[in-house]
Design a binder for these strands. Structure first.
Lengths: 140, 140
DNA sequence: TTTGCAAATGCAACATTGTTACACTTTACA
DNA sequence: TGTAAAGTGTAACAATGTTGCATTTGCAAA
């Protein structure tokens, strides 16, 4: 399936209108693949893209489960496109991310399983994220 | 050992001067125990505490390993006092934290072990944090 | 195809947090 | 007890998050 088609499908699945900003942003996420990108990075790439609209676009995408937030230690919130695996889990976040301290990139590690930790009995676990950091292969 | 003594010891260990702000902030962390607190929370509690000084105090405490940063999904950076266990690991961050979506508190789970994930061979892992969220016992 | 309405956008405005520079104050030690 | 270095407070600015409101746009029904 080509990119345009995938974008169209994702928006339909999320019951979102097809607008130029959304298509543009979604294309970025599809191209980024497993790399989580920040609002800042998208802003820099498209200088005439309104910051507030972008903020709301990301928020909307997250709400409908097109993207998920990747927590990392940089303090900057980043997002990555959800894999199919993600959507089959009813958009629960059980992601592992690796943050490279050198290139500051965050990549989703779909193949790393997060074990269920044994919490106190009365705690109700909803999401879990494993935040790893260090130096990635490309930077060594 | 009483609190004053512990504060004094921690500052000496970090080779930091004993000042009123530092003693005040450190006392908060000791009282908070395993609960991670944000700059904002400390600010609210002590209204005449200078925001920038607090920022630098937290930064300094983190650098010398008195406190560690707790990543959570709130976007607000939080810190908690390091357990002895923490300092014996040369201040590497291998923490598990639970964030309650209701009371917005973050607690350190010292007893939850983070398993070493199998990363691509050329990745160099330095820190790992397990970020759990849901509803805590007190809020149910 | 046109049209109306809800959704989406862009702008203004403001809050919070992070960060540095610089002058002033305080601590700790000689 | 005086002094140098460390710490503090003020100012100033950047980045990001967030809401209100007027305008524009997408889309579906007429």
């Amino acid at each position: 399936m080509d990119v345009e088609q995938r974008i169209s499908n994702l928006l339909k699945l999320g019951k979102l209108r097809s607008t130029s900003v959304r298509k543009l942003v979604l294309k970025e996420f599809l191209e980024a693949g497993t790399t989580a990108i920040s609002s800042y990075e998208i802003e820099k790439k498209f200088e005439d893209l309104d910051r507030i609209t972008l903020y709301r676009t990301l928020k909307t995408f997250e709400e409908v489960g097109i993207i998920h937030q990747a927590v990392d230690v940089s303090g900057r919130s980043k997002y990555a496109i959800c894999s199919e695996d993600c959507s089959t889990h009813q958009h629960e976040d059980h992601h592992a991310h690796f943050y490279c301290k050198k290139c500051e990139k965050t990549v989703c590690l779909d193949n790393v399983k997060i074990p269920r930790p044994n919490l106190p009995a009365d705690f109700q676990l909803e999401d879990s994220q494993l935040v790893l950091s260090g130096v990635c292969g490309a930077c060594r």
